[in-house]
Amino acid sequence: MPDVMIAEEPPRQPEVLRLLEMSDAFAASLYPAESNHLVDVSTLEQPGVLFLVARFGEAVVGCCALVEAGDGTAEIKRMFVDPNARGLKVGKRLLQTIERHGETLGLDMIRLETGIHQPEAIGLYTSAGYVERPPFGSYQPDPLSLFMEKALRVPADLDR
């Protein structure tokens, strides 16, 4: 039986684009357009963006991006797992891989925005140590959004 493999890959490939379209449709089914904070493929191809693809055998079953903010933080974007692959712990493995990359990059904090109607995503992030926080960056308060973060490093002044 094949194992799930996660690697950095370009987002502009047919199976990944299909997954991103599934993600778009899922988000649109839960939230109005103004509450969907999705980034497009060209944004995922920019410098400072790490894009990971999860494969089960040859099939693309999940993806996520880590977008550096330039201030020691980065944001998780486009985290999505094909519904047919749920139960393989793809989301958990993608999150762990993103965090390892964040540590390697020397990031202090990883942040994210997710929707309040996604209990599985909220549970994943909470179980991994993410905590709620106010909106960050260019986000505005939105009753349908939940903002979270996780410190990767203890600030030097607290590490005593």
Results as ranks from 00 to 15, higher is better:
Gly48Phe: 13
Leu50Trp: 12
Phe51Glu: 00
Phe51Arg: 00
Val53Lys: 02
Ala54Cys: 10
Arg55Ser: 04
Arg55Asp: 03
Arg55Thr: 04
Gly57Ala: 00
Gly57Glu: 00
Gly57Asn: 01
Ala59Thr: 11
Gly62Ile: 05
Gly62Asn: 12
Cys63Ile: 15
Cys64Trp: 02
Ala65Cys: 03
Leu66Ala: 06
Glu68Ile: 10
Ala69Asn: 12
Gly70Asp: 00
Gly72Leu: 00
Thr73Phe: 11
Ile76Cys: 04
Arg78His: 04
Met79Ile: 15
Phe80Tyr: 15
Val81Ile: 14
Val81Thr: 15
Val81Phe: 01
Pro83Ile: 15
Ala85Met: 06
Ala85Glu: 04
Arg86Asp: 05
Leu88Ala: 07
Lys89Ile: 12
Lys89Ala: 10
Lys92Asn: 04
Leu95Asp: 03
Leu95Lys: 10
Thr104Phe: 01
Thr104Glu: 06
Asp108Tyr: 07
Met109His: 10
Ile110Trp: 14
Arg111His: 01
Leu112Tyr: 02
Leu112Gly: 07
Thr114Val: 05
Thr114Glu: 02
Gly115Ile: 13
Gly115Arg: 10
Gly115Met: 06
His117Glu: 10
His117Lys: 14
Pro119His: 11
Pro119Ala: 11
Glu120Tyr: 00
Glu120Phe: 00
Ala121Tyr: 00
Ile122Pro: 04
Ile122Glu: 01
Ile122Trp: 00
Tyr125Gly: 09
Tyr125Asp: 10
Thr126Leu: 11
Thr126Lys: 15
Val131Ser: 13
Glu132Tyr: 03
Glu132Phe: 02
Arg133Gly: 00
Pro134Lys: 04
Pro135Met: 01
Tyr139Ser: 03
Gln140Pro: 06
Pro141Tyr: 05
Pro141Thr: 04
Pro141Gly: 05
Pro143Gly: 08
Leu144Ala: 09
Ser145Phe: 13
Leu146Cys: 12
Phe147Tyr: 15
Phe147Ser: 07
Glu149Asp: 08
Glu149Gln: 10
